[in-house]
């Protein structure tokens, strides 16, 4: 089932099926290896609820809900 990355709870993981949204943000995400087929795990959200921390390719990345909403995972 396809969901957006923003909907995942901490500890859940998914395989990226599409990356869309703002050109600058997608470019950056892709440069850092978040592309179709990458497995991403949500680690936690920041104390104020946003942004979120995810794990991919062995490193930790932060992104905001507004950016995560444009990434679909399965």
């Amino acid at each position: 089932m396809a969901r957006s990355l923003a909907e995942l709870d901490p500890g859940e993981r998914g395989r990226v099926t599409s990356v869309a949204g703002d050109a600058d943000a997608t470019r950056r995400l892709m440069d850092m290896g978040l592309i179709r087929g990458t497995t991403v795990e949500v680690v936690r959200r920041a104390p104020l609820g946003d942004p979120m921390e995810v794990k991919l390719r062995g490193f930790m990345l932060t992104l905001r809900r507004s950016e995560a909403e444009h990434i679909t995972v399965e």
């Binding site: 703002d22 600058d24 943000a25 950056r28 995400l29 850092m32 942004p51 921390e53 490193f59 930790m60 990345l61 932060t62 992104l63 905001r64 507004s66 950016e67």
Partner: peptide
């Protein structure tokens, strides 16, 4: 808004 896409090293 600039993205908050940042590594936590």
């Amino acid at each position: 808004a600039r993205p908050m896409i940042m590594e936590l090293p």
